[in-house]
């Protein structure tokens, strides 16, 4: 599995050779702790901190803001960001005098409550189906791949629009439609990995011993396919977030009085000339979160790949630039 080129250049690096010193040369050297690796990569560390903050705010923020996200105060309408009106006036107010900061915090919760379950659902279902289809091959593979083709061959936003119009646009329906729309991505990735692993020697051995295929998939195929799938999931998190905000922006996603970042942009659009902060700030929140997820995805891919992990111990300059996942996946 290890690329000879990687191995040879890896051995010439001082870090890699230091591993070969007598006291560290035990037969099983432990891989470096992941947080130490994260600390070495400044970009990934910052991204992880931002994402952590966003998740923290989404989880506990609502406890602190009370009803400030929906409390109207027409006397405070369209206040620009300033330090004069306390903590919740820092980022200004919208046309109904609601604090933009409080709404951003509230929206962080909504956005993540939609994105995280959607990603988890499609990851679980897509990976399971994909590994099953790839391991068995034949008609199972055909059916799974044709289904994936059908879902992927049509613009996801359009299907979402039609479906959300049929079944009123609630957060649950958005989660479901996003999950279904993204299943093919994991299905294809998992199938490709498991179709390749199916003919490997250790899988053959397991089969010869009479291991049921369910266990082979779980014990032998899943651990190897998991890093790739997790990387795809991290990237897909961006896609799901962006689609949710697009739907909310078009008026068929999250509905008022709930609020999501995409909806905030839509609501601020009419006041663009007079009150830029209403539309600009939630957009920045979206970009910060998605960029962090993309950066972290690139790091996760390296950190979870035993053949590539040593790269993270190098100074940044000497690492090759790389795409996080094959670009087809995020298309």
């Amino acid at each position: 599995m290890t690329d000879p080129a990687d191995r040879s250049s890896g051995d010439t690096t001082p870090e890699a050779t230091s591993v070969a010193t007598p006291e560290a040369a035990s037969p099983r050297t432990r891989p470096p702790r992941w947080w130490l690796l994260l600390g070495r990569d400044r970009g990934a560390a910052v991204a992880a901190v931002i994402l952590g903050l966003v998740f923290l705010i989404a989880l506990v923020g609502r406890l602190f803001i009370g009803d400030r996200a929906i409390r109207q105060d027409l006397k405070a309408s369209l206040r620009p960001p300033s330090f004069d009106h306390g903590f919740y006036g820092l980022l200004g107010t919208d046309v109904l005098g609601r604090s933009v900061l409080a709404r951003l915090i509230e929206a962080a919760g909504t956005t993540l409550y939609v994105a995280v379950p959607a990603v988890l659902c499609s990851l679980l279902i897509g990976s399971a189906l994909g590994m099953w289809a790839g391991y068995h091959g034949g008609w199972r593979e055909n059916i799974a791949m044709r289904t994936a083709d059908v879902i992927l061959s049509f613009p996801s936003l359009l299907i979402a629009v039609v479906v959300l119009y049929v079944f009123s646009p609630s957060a649950l329906n958005i989660v479901l439609i996003l999950a279904v729309a993204r299943i093919p991505v994991y299905l294809r990735t998992a199938r490709a990995e498991s179709a390749e692993l199916r003919s490997r020697l250790f899988v053959d051995a397991a089969r010869t011993f009479g291991t049921p295929s369910r266990n082979i998939i779980y014990r032998h195929i899943l651990p190897i396919a998991l890093p790739t799938l997790l990387t795809v999931a991290t990237l897909d998190f961006c896609f799901v977030m962006l689609t949710e905000s697009s739907l909310s922006f078009l008026g068929i996603g999250i509905q008022p009085p709930d609020v999501s970042w995409g909806l905030m942009v839509a609501q601020g659009r009419q006041y663009l000339q007079t009150a830029w902060w209403i539309a600009v700030l939630p957009g920045i929140a979206i970009v910060l979160t998605t960029v962090s997820a993309t950066v972290l995805a690139a790091w996760v891919r390296l950190a979870t790949d035993p053949a590539q992990r040593w790269r993270l111990t190098l100074p940044k300059k000497r690492r090759g630039a790389r795409a996080a996942v094959s670009p087809e996946v995020i298309a």
Partner: peptide, 30 residues
Amino acid sequence: PNSLIDRIAGLLSMIAASIPDFWFAIMGVL
């Protein structure tokens, strides 16, 4: 690989995967 153009290209593709298109359009208008 790893030249200036390569790094710019990497950055561009990251932005492409992360920026909401409706927000980009609105910022362009603004």
